[in-house]
C-alpha cells in the first residue's frame, strides 16, 4: 500500500461547531508525519476519526485500503493507537491487560507471551508487569499505552501527544523508541512539542481551525520560514 493513510474532504461538526473543515491528506508508506496545531485546531478530532472513535460529518478516511467508517475492524487491525490520555482497567496488571488486548487482536498464545515481554521491556515496565495498574502513575500508564500500541507490531502508529505525563527522561526514552520503531512504520503523530516532531518526523501537517494550513517536508519549511517554530507561528496566526 503506497498510501496507508488517506484522508479525503474530512469535516466534523460538534453540533454547530465546525471542528474539521474539508481536511485532505495522504500519508505515504513508512513516512512519519507530525500533526501540529494550536489547542482546538482539530488534531484530536482527526485522530479520533482515524481510529473509528467518532464519525465524520462528511468525507472519508482510508486505512490500508479499508474505509474506517464502513469496515472499522479491518481498518483498526492495521493500527496501533494512543488517543488523548488513555486509561486502563485498574484491577488488571500490565501483563493481563496486554494479554486481553492481544487476544482481542487474535494473537496466538506463545507469540503473545513473548511479545508482551518484548514490549514491556521496551517501555521499561518489566518490574511492574504483575502489579495492578491502580498503583500506576500517569507516566507509567503512558508507557503501558505505548506498549499496547506496539504489541501486535502494526504497520501504522497513530499517536496523540504520547509524551504527555512523562518525566524528562521518559520523554527522551519515548522519542528514542519512536525513532527506532518508526523506521519501518507509518507514524501519524500529533504533538505540541516541535522538537519532538522534528526528531521523529520528516513531514508535518499544520492545521488551524480545522483547516489544513500546510503539508510539507520539515526541511523545506525550515528553509522557507527559517525555523519550524516560525512556520508554525505564521501559519497559525501568531507573530514570528
Amino acid at each position: 500500500m503506497d498510501e496507508p493513510i488517506v484522508i479525503e474532504n474530512l469535516s466534523k461538526y460538534y453540533n454547530h461547531f465546525l471542528a474539521l473543515d474539508n481536511l485532505s491528506l495522504k500519508v505515504k508508506q513508512n513516512e512519519n508525519i507530525g500533526l501540529l496545531g494550536p489547542n482546538g485546531a482539530g488534531k484530536s478530532t482527526t485522530l479520533k476519526i482515524l481510529c473509528g472513535l467518532i464519525r465524520s460529518s462528511s468525507g472519508r478516511v482510508i486505512i490500508n485500503g479499508q474505509n474506517v467508517a464502513e469496515k472499522p475492524e479491518q481498518a483498526l487491525s492495521n493500527i496501533g493507537a494512543i488517543v488523548e490520555t488513555p486509561e486502563f482497567y485498574p484491577f488488571l496488571t500490565p501483563e493481563e491487560t496486554l494479554k486481553y488486548l492481544g487476544r482481542l487482536r487474535g494473537m496466538q498464545t506463545v507469540t503473545l507471551k513473548n511479545r508482551i515481554v518484548e514490549v514491556i521491556t521496551l517501555v521499561g515496565l518489566e518490574k511492574w508487569i504483575t502489579v495492578k495498574i491502580e498503583k500506576f502513575s500517569r507516566g507509567m500508564k503512558q508507557r503501558l499505552a505505548l506498549a499496547q500500541t506496539l504489541l501486535h507490531d502494526p504497520p501504522i502508529l497513530i499517536l496523540d501527544e504520547p509524551g504527555l505525563g512523562l518525566d524528562p527522561r521518559g520523554v527522551v526514552e519515548f522519542r528514542e523508541i519512536l525513532e527506532d520503531v518508526g523506521k519501518d512504520k507509518t507514524v501519524f503523530f500529533a504533538s505540541h512539542q516541535l522538537t519532538e516532531v522534528t526528531q521523529i518526523c520528516s513531514q508535518v501537517a499544520v492545521i488551524d481551525h480545522g483547516k489544513l494550513m500546510v503539508y510539507s517536508n520539515i526541511a523545506e519549511l525550515e528553509k522557507q520560514y527559517n525555523s519550524l517554530e516560525n512556520a508554525y507561528l505564521e501559519l497559525t496566526g501568531g507573530v514570528s
Binding site: 481510529c51 473509528g52 472513535l53 472499522p72 475492524e73 479491518q74 483498526l76 487491525s77 493500527i79 493507537a81 494512543i82 488517543v83 488523548e84 490520555t85 488513555p86 486509561e87 486502563f88 482497567y89 488486548l101 482481542l104 487482536r105 499505552a145 499496547q148
Partner: peptide
C-alpha cells in the same frame, strides 16, 4: 477513558 484503549481494537 478506558474506551480509548478498548475501542481502538478490531472488535
Amino acid at each position: 477513558k478506558t474506551g480509548y484503549i478498548l475501542f481502538t481494537n478490531p472488535v
